[in-house]
Computed example of a mutant assay.
Amino acid sequence: MFRPLRSIRQPVLAAALLAACVAMTANAAELKSGLKIAFVPKQINNPYEVIADDGGMAAIKEMKGQGKVVGPSDAGASSQVSYINTLITQKQDAVVIAANDANAVVPYLKKAMSQGIKVVTFDSDTAPEGRQIFVNQADSESIGRGQIQLLSKLVGGEGEFAILSATPNATNQNTWIKWMQEELKKPEYAKLKLVKIAYGNDDDQKSFVETQGLLQAYPNLKGIVAPTSVGIAAAARYIQSSPSKGKVAVTGLGTPNQMRAFVKNGTVKAFQLWDPGQLGYLAAFAAANLASGTISGKEGESFEAGKLGKRTVGKSGEVILGPPTTFDSANIDSFNF
């Protein structure tokens, strides 16, 4: 009795598998081969940016494109301009940039787009007219509010704290800080007091010195939130060898490999981040789809992003990677990036 059913099932299953293979082949074929895609990080030597750029290069290799990373050694507002101009001259198919300033690079990115070069921002956005798509780590509001929620747990819901940011013009930092300040307005944080926003300019030594200055200026400080991978590591490094260890909570955004030693020695109890490699990977696929003409950056469009699957363009051309992870002593050894 069951043989006829099996014989029917087999061709149906084979047809379904064939259809799936055809669909996958069609999706792969939609991307042009040999696309030239350049990544422009905030800083060429920033550990976080290196991981993100490596993710982008891995994606470009998968799609048989030509990838390159070029950028400044400092995070100045206009330090990326000369690199953008060079990439325009080289006639890249797409530029993927983490902007040091929301406005300084816009005229040059607009020039690139006017010459047919597709522009994707990731990690740190420009003004919307400077790009077609912004690949965001996670929803900016949830990142900012989440930082305050985590800090509150670490300091017992009360006390003075400071924010150690990157540069004063960094779009992502300023957006997250805005949402931190919004979260602080809730009544449950009435006993938390933000005393200072300091800027380490995404420079390790300056962030280290800023941490020292915060502790000297605010002897009752209970916590430091550094929503920058350079800042959180520098703050932890200073505090681990100071009398403030165990008294001042350090949290923010950092990579597990960078922060593991500080978690192991008790300097840092918990911090957050997404996988920056996946962020770069997603940005590369967004750029490739733009350059291949499968999407234009309009809200509601969707595209295939390799191992990350199908992604949809949201409001104002935003594509979101996903929610951040909280890392602590219980789970940090499960991650390697």
Rank of each mutant, 00 (worst) to 15 (best):
N103S: 15
V81S: 09
L17Q: 11
S142Y: 00
P168T: 13
Y238C: 06
N174V: 02
A170V: 10
E318S: 13
E299N: 13
E62G: 06
N201L: 04
G55F: 03
Y83S: 03
K153E: 14
K42F: 06
A330V: 00
A291G: 02
E304H: 15
K118M: 08
G317K: 03
S33A: 11
M57D: 07
L194W: 12
P323V: 05
L109Q: 06
Q66W: 07
Q90V: 08
T25N: 13
K32N: 02
P324D: 05
S82M: 00
I88G: 08
G67R: 05
P11Y: 10
V230H: 05
S334V: 04
E183S: 00
V313C: 05
T89Q: 14
A52T: 11
G277M: 07
V96Q: 06
A198S: 11
T86F: 00
L150G: 00
A249V: 02
L13G: 01
F335P: 02
R9L: 15
K64H: 14
R3H: 11
E188S: 09
P11H: 10
A291C: 02
R6P: 06
A284L: 03
S229A: 14
A75C: 01
N257L: 13
S329L: 12
L321T: 04
Q132E: 13
A19W: 11
K222G: 04
G159V: 10
S140C: 08
F337H: 03
G55E: 02
A28I: 01
R6W: 15
L308F: 11
V12G: 05
E210H: 02
F39R: 03
T86P: 00
T25C: 14
I44Y: 14
T294Y: 09
S241H: 01
K196S: 09
A283T: 04
F208K: 01
V225R: 14
P4H: 08
K307Y: 14
F39M: 05
I117K: 01
S302Y: 10
T89F: 14
N85S: 15
A270K: 09
L279K: 09
M24L: 15
S7P: 03
A16R: 05
A190S: 15
K153A: 11
G55H: 00
Q10W: 15
L282N: 05
S244A: 14
L35C: 05
V22P: 08
L5A: 15
L31I: 15
L13N: 07
I177N: 04
I88Y: 10
A29I: 06
A198T: 04
A75V: 02
S124R: 05
R6K: 14
L279E: 12
Q212F: 00
G297Q: 06
I197L: 04
Q216K: 13
S241D: 11
G71F: 09
V195M: 08
V12K: 12
Q278H: 02
S73Q: 14
S82T: 07
V105N: 12
V105L: 12
S114C: 09
M259S: 06
F39V: 05
R260S: 04
M57K: 13
V106T: 09
V155I: 13
A19K: 06
S79C: 04
Q205L: 11
K153R: 12
Q216H: 08
S302C: 01
I163G: 03
N220T: 10
I117T: 09
P128I: 10
N174Y: 01
T325M: 12
P219N: 12
K196I: 11
S124C: 08
